[in-house]
């Protein structure tokens, strides 16, 4: 094996690994996008301002960038799913958000959809696992 072959193999392996990581990041982002809205709506059943909402979500295990969360709050408010008000707290004016009536109804519908999708995915994954186990068993026999 020449040094060129070794270098080439290492390069291809590293390149594939980087591509895999990038693809995973892109797919994860796509998967998270919808879930993020759901999490924000659910969290805002209690009133929060931007920073405390971000902290609450992070403590629940859902870290979200500030530059994504704050514009998202504005968008959800424009869509009528949130209400907001400026109020003074700890000597500073802050904008507090809360789920609106329409937001609550939307959250309920979205949660139904979410649970249905979860059940479907679980069902598909479960069937695949069972069928793989059966194939393996056939092979042993």
């Amino acid at each position: 094996m020449t040094s060129y072959t070794v270098r080439h193999t290492v390069y291809v392996a590293m390149h594939n690994e980087i591509q895999d990581a990038e693809l995973f990041d892109a797919l994860r982002l796509e998967l998270r996008r919808g879930a993020l809205v759901l999490a924000v709506l659910a969290q805002l059943r209690r009133e929060h301002y931007g920073y405390t909402l971000r902290k609450a979500l992070a403590e629940s295990g859902l870290a979200i960038e500030e530059s994504t969360l704050y514009p998202l709050l504005r968008r959800l408010e424009t869509q009528g799913l949130l209400t907001s008000e400026w109020r003074e707290e700890e000597r500073r004016n802050k904008r507090f958000y809360r789920l609106s009536g329409a937001g609550e109804r939307m959250l309920a519908r979205l949660l139904d959809e979410w649970r249905g999708m979860n059940a479907t995915i679980d069902g598909i994954v479960g069937r695949v696992v069972v069928s793989e186990a059966e194939t393996e068993l056939e092979g042993v026999r």
């Binding site: 931007g50 500030e66 704050y70 400026w86």
Partner: peptide, 16 residues
């Protein structure tokens, strides 16, 4: 409006 909100959030983070 947007800048006031960003300022409040950033200051809260700094204080934290």
């Amino acid at each position: 409006d947007v800048l006031a909100e960003l300022r409040a959030n950033l200051m809260a983070r700094v204080e934290d």
